[in-house]
Design a protein around this nucleic acid. Structure first.
Length: 102
DNA sequence: ATGCGAAGTCGTCATTAAGA
DNA sequence: TCTTAATGACGACTTCGCAT
């Protein structure tokens, strides 16, 4: 995992896909929808809203996952360091004990 | 310079778990 | 039971490093 904070590449500029249609006016209450045309528009609007929410949820989910992995990596580093220290300490104590025993 | 494979990123779909 | 947020899986795309 290299670039946690890497510069944002030109990358993102790919999907003109969705950005919720500009003037998404909150549709009238369901009761006032009549024509098939209106129903279709409402369905489209709902779908776009759902996709947008899920897109953001996916981003957030990935962000949290990255953060979690980073935490784990930090913890590994700390534990490895502690382990190293303890091994050194043990070695020193063994030496001390051996020399005393002679 | 360029072609290629690996790794990273994103959006979408399907599924699941939790709350109303 | 229905709704919704979270997450895994997948395909499309970009970026990077290396060999030629």
């Amino acid at each position: 995992m290299a670039a946690a904070t890497g510069d944002m590449p030109t990358y993102q500029i790919r999907a003109p896909t969705t950005a919720l249609p500009q003037g998404v006016v909150m549709a009238a209450s369901p009761g006032s929808l009549h024509s098939p045309q209106q129903l279709a528009e409402e369905a489209t609007r709902k779908r776009e809203l759902r996709l947008m929410k899920n897109r953001e949820a996916a981003r957030e989910c990935r962000r949290k996952k990255k953060e979690y992995v980073k935490c784990l990596e930090n913890r590994v580093a700390v534990l490895e360091s502690q382990n190293k220290t303890l091994i050194e300490e043990l070695k020193a104590l063994k030496d001390l004990y051996c020399h005393k025993a002679e």
